[in-house]
Design a protein around this nucleic acid. Structure first.
Lengths: 271, 271
DNA sequence: CGTAGAGTTGAGTGTATTCAACTCGGGTGG
DNA sequence: CCACCCGAGTTGAATACACTCAACTCTACG
């Protein structure tokens, strides 16, 4: 569903400052996996939006804030996380270009986590209520938003398994593969490397590990010829098959392949 | 929002075999937190449904099944879980009466986890597509389903923090409190005990711990006078304040208090 | 009375943590 | 220009939390 070409188009658009004839942020995010009609594109692009620039380390919003906006990350990396009183921190997920933030905002009185930029970042923001209205007016778009929510849930469940039942070696392998698949959506010719703009401490906070243990485990993965870490934090997967085996990674949960409700047959069922 | 009285009403209805003038399963689940109109109740009750009885240990569906039904648990406990090849198992969540299962079914080609009955269980099942149709016809009901999804997401995020960054002692304390709050929805006169129909091994699988370590940690909680474990697996919280402090438990994430989109003001915003 | 499942406990092991020191490179200010 | 500092990465050593293996108890059940 997600074609390599479209993803590249998305990434190109991010870096351009002028959108010109390009699609708006939401149309691009949804358009990656769904062929939108002209009317749907117009409706998405007609929403009021604001552009936001954040420097690395800046917070977009804090745990407990009452936020009535939904965001689309256009450029850069962010993370969603929560910190305990004594400083222990858990990252729920990394946020990649195209991802939505505060997706469920209309349904939650306050946020329950903090969102922070890992690199300089650019976002577009929308009113949560506008998105709900739009979802009602355009059922296919509503289904697309719901699908994005279901997909996020699925990714979070996999994160639970990763943290709860895999050891450090498997956890890191699994995370690196997930990021690869999400960045370079799975097709047969996908690339095997990407920039991971994240310190080892942050990786540890995502995986429930200490910085030191992340360091040793990454070194082990390198020593065994499974990955390579260039300068500039570029990760290259050298032995995809072995890594997939170690991590017991099966990409089904990423749901990059199909959106059941958007088939002709199912759209008819729900009227 | 969730009144104690209504919860008790829900539990009463579960055990009755005949519904008589009682509400149907979905109307009861949603009615716990939203005052439904007659029309909405009729619409919910008009959906085709099937009743399902499962014995303890039986699976409702397996990871990878293509399921186009959404379920409401009426009676008993279940869990959603995934198992790695070597047998390590992670429970994503316990499922309590009133909870929905395969909530996102319309948006997912196959399930990514297995659902198993922990006790004898009774469920009602509905067509996923019927629920999507209904959500379109009745926006407040659509919002209610979306809210339930957002709430599940919130609970899962807390589970990530619990597993990723709390130690065994804090993890168990936190889980016991979450279950208490979910069962006995928070009000000032809530009870302090409940039946936990779960072996220590299952608790370990939920918390990413070994059976032996769960055992020792529970014993420590007992020895310190924080909890009591009667026969019949009844848990009594003896020192709620201390336990809340240890677990750093703050019930906001449970979202038992408010449904933003369902206020008058917000319903107007979305038309 | 024997068995099976759950709980309990001890002992030894191991994975991951903490504390600490050191390297390296980039940036800043004297 | 160089000294200094800081953040990130690396490594060693000691510790601790949690796991595995194993044995034993207790209760329910047939």
């Amino acid at each position: 569903m997600l074609s390599r070409q479209k993803v590249l188009k998305f990434q190109k658009a991010e870096t351009d400052q002028k959108d010109e004839s390009e699609l708006g942020p939401l149309a691009r995010t949804i358009g990656v996996f769904l062929d939108l009609t002209e009317e749907e594109i117009s409706a998405l692009d007609a929403l009021n939006r604001q552009k936001i620039h954040l420097a690395a380390q800046q917070d977009l919003y804090l745990e407990g804030d009452a936020i009535d906006r939904t965001y689309v990350l256009l450029h850069g990396w962010m993370c969603r996380h929560r910190t305990l009183e004594d400083g222990r921190r858990q990252i729920m997920s990394f946020v990649l270009p195209g991802d939505l933030l505060n997706h469920f905002g209309a349904y939650q009185p306050t946020t329950i986590h903090t969102v922070t930029a890992l690199t300089d970042a650019v976002l577009a923001s929308f009113s949560c209520h506008d998105i709900v209205s739009l979802s009602r007016a355009y059922p296919r778009l509503g289904a697309a938003f719901a699908w994005l929510g279901a997909r996020k849930y699925s990714l979070l469940e996999e994160h639970v398994v990763r943290i709860g039942r895999r050891n450090a070696y498997e956890r890191i392998a699994h995370m690196l593969l997930e990021l690869l698949h999400c960045l370079n959506v799975v097709d047969d010719s996908c690339e095997d490397g990407y920039e991971l703009p994240v310190t080892q401490e942050i990786l540890g906070d995502a995986l429930g590990l200490s910085l030191v243990h992340v360091n040793r485990t990454l070194r082990r993965l390198r020593k065994e010829g499974l990955i390579q870490m260039d300068s500039n934090r570029r990760i290259v997967i050298l032995d995809m098959d072995a890594l997939t085996e170690i991590a017991e990674f099966s990409p089904d949960y990423l749901q990059h392949r199909s959106i059941p409700i958007l088939t002709e047959e199912n759209l008819q069922k729900v009227g």
